[in-house]
């Protein structure tokens, strides 16, 4: 890996090089919450001053830029009894994601496994993914972050360059040739031994700042053993089946498909809409049979898919521990608490 060091004011220059010819998305302040704390969101940016480099975490992940809530899979032109199907992957230019935190980069890496690198790769995702340039940036752990327990507190790949704030200067890991070429536009230096030491210190300090955690040892087996546990009913009784957890989750990708005819009857659309397994109709079939009619069976399924099924298939969990679902859940259901309670039930 190639490392460089650059002065703080160089970052603005780098941003300007990016934005001069490309679409850039970064974290901005979208408003304030009840406690007057800033609420952050990923959004298109053209002005460096708008970008919040020290954002805590965004309410919503950057998902809408690669898995939009609603997306047209195909359009049809209908003439008399004949039709033609037109397929577009709904992207026409590359995108720079500026300042993604490790959890969100790891979320993309996990999605890649199922959407790009398994059977029937999904072109709608692939087209966006292949046109994505990622500038990662280190973060300050929040009270709800348990990424360290999920092994996603650092990103090893899945970005083009990754920037760490060393106090006075930035330390950058360069993973791709494209990133290296971009960096030629600003003044960078080879890091010295003392920079390495400083980097280690920063990493060490951050490591100590994590508070939330969850024990995932043997979790796949525990989920199997506790499949009939009443603890699921406890959580199911609280769950509002609103689906918020899935929509704020950077790794939730489940969907439904709908077809509609245009009003003029000359065209039709096939639309993919992200779904949530907590919603009542997720496993309902025509005729009214529902394979998961109770809230607890759906909530359990969400954990089962993320922490067992995905692990079985790809040897890692489909959760990056960003804590967004817990923070957004009106019923106060958080991943560490659910997993802890299942584990505790098994110990009784």
């Amino acid at each position: 890996m190639i490392f460089r060091i650059f002065e703080k004011e160089e970052l603005k220059k780098l941003f300007e090089v990016f934005v001069a010819h490309n679409r850039v998305v970064g974290a901005v302040e979208a408003g304030r919450d009840r406690d007057d704390q800033p609420v952050y969101a990923f959004s298109d940016v053209s002005d460096y001053n708008e970008i919040k480099l020290d954002y805590s975490i965004t309410k919503l992940p950057a998902k809408r830029f690669f898995l939009p809530f609603k997306e047209e899979l195909a359009t049809f032109r209908i003439e008399n009894d004949n039709w033609t199907k037109d397929i577009s992957y709904n992207i026409d230019r590359p995108l720079i994601l500026f300042g993604l935190h490790p959890c969100d980069i790891n979320a993309l890496n996990k999605l890649d496994k199922v959407l790009l690198h398994s059977v029937y790769p999904m072109p709608y995702y692939a087209a966006k993914r292949k046109n994505m340039f990622i500038v990662g940036m280190n973060c300050v752990p929040q009270p709800s972050c348990f990424c360290r327990s999920m092994g996603t507190d650092t990103a090893l790949h899945g970005f083009d360059m990754f920037i760490t704030d060393l106090g006075g200067r930035y330390f950058v890991e360069i993973l791709t040739n494209t990133a290296f070429n971009f960096l030629r536009h600003i003044r960078t230096m080879e890091p010295m031994e003392e920079d390495h030491i400083l980097y280690m210190k920063v990493v060490e300090k951050r490591k100590k700042e994590f508070t939330a955690q969850v024990d995932t040892t043997d979790l796949t087996k525990i989920l199997d053993m506790e499949f009939q546990s009443d603890v699921w009913k406890y959580w199911g009784d609280r769950c509002l089946a609103c689906g918020t957890c899935a929509s704020v989750c950077p790794t939730c990708y489940c969907y439904g498909v709908e077809e509609t005819v245009d009003i003029n009857l000359k065209g039709a659309k096939k639309t993919k809409i992200l779904h949530s397994c907590n919603l009542i109709d997720f496993a309902e079939v025509a005729g009214g049979h529902n394979f998961r009619p109770e809230r607890h069976s759906r909530l359990k399924y969400r954990y089962y898919h993320k922490h067992r099924g995905f692990v079985e298939a790809f040897e890692e969990s489909l959760c990056v521990g960003c804590g967004r679902c817990g923070e957004s859940c009106l019923a106060g259901i958080t991943v560490p608490e659910v997993i802890e309670s299942i584990r505790a039930d098994g110990k009784e």
């Binding site: 029937y120 489940c254 498909v257 079939v285 394979f291 099924g309």
Partner: peptide, 19 residues
């Protein structure tokens, strides 16, 4: 038989457990 929206292991609607 399960609900299906893709047939290609992407929409997750057809999962039984996590299969």
């Amino acid at each position: 038989e399960r609900r299906m929206h893709c047939g290609m292991g992407k929409c997750c609607r057809c999962n039984v457990g996590s299969t």
